[in-house]
Design a protein around this nucleic acid. Structure first.
Lengths: 136, 136
DNA sequence: TATTACTCTACTAAATCTATAGGGTAAAAG
DNA sequence: CTTTTACCCTATAGATTTAGTAGAGTAATA
């Protein structure tokens, strides 16, 4: 299941990408437009900012804005920041690899085999889909 | 994340598929071989039985066995029974569809668009992968 | 200098996961 | 008829995650 955090994050990013100009947009504006709890959205935008996806401006006329062009923001970045690993099992994760305790040998493991294929395909989609693709 | 329930279920099914003969295998045997808590495994095999994947035999020489050939058991069946929806979001689920409360129009929704593509790809893999494929 | 908006910490209510523990019942084989 | 094993049910519980809420603090801009 996709968490609401990620869902809201994507919606907010798309909202920003759909802006004509790259002027800052207030949290409250996005929150109302996308039906997201303002405080929750605040924490989401903050992690996106800390990780170089968004910039922010304080004071009057402040808000959040994209730091890169939508076409240069792949969904892998967004998913990893908000949702965490893309793989369904840690033993097939690229960025969050962990060995299974219960599994004697990954090369023989059926679950590993299956989930590796799923990860490869999902990763391909996230890599090839940018914020620009979702904003049309 | 894949739940342990599903993970254990797949491992147990593969264990059964790898048997030379289709004679019943005891829960305790599978539990030991695959490092799975016996009671937990019991409940997993029970749901697989209730849904037509496994058969069981009581008493001495009893246990669980596959009701179909491994090549006739696609992973879609197993995933849906144990893990639930294959889609990451209910609004793109085939078997567990639900409308999002916060979303005014699915056709415009970026999350919907992205997750629909992911679901299509994942589904294709699960449909084309059978228990036989995992048992080699 | 007042307003607006971002920053940060802490807390919480509810749900889900992953079991564990233990009871009893039913069927099949020897 | 006795043993074995599956079936079925309830209750408990620690850990983690989710989806927020509350409130105080800080910084920039008009």
């Amino acid at each position: 299941m996709l968490s609401k955090k990620t869902k809201y994050g994507i919606k907010a990013l798309v909202h920003l990408a759909r802006q004509e100009e790259r002027t800052p947009v207030q949290i409250s504006t996005i929150s109302k437009a996308e039906n997201i709890s303002q405080k929750f959205l605040e924490s989401i935008l903050l992690t996106l900012k800390k990780n170089g996806v968004l910039g922010s401006k304080k004071g009057k006329g402040g808000g959040y804005y994209l730091l890169k062009e939508p076409k240069d923001i792949p969904m892998t970045t967004v998913m990893r920041l908000l949702e965490g690993p893309i793989a369904m099992v840690p033993c097939v994760s690229l960025n969050f690899y962990e060995k299974c305790e219960d599994c004697p040998d990954e090369k023989i493991c059926a679950v590993n085999k299956l989930m590796l294929e799923v990860r490869d395909n999902t990763l391909k989609i996230f890599r090839n889909t940018t914020l620009a693709d979702l904003s049309n």
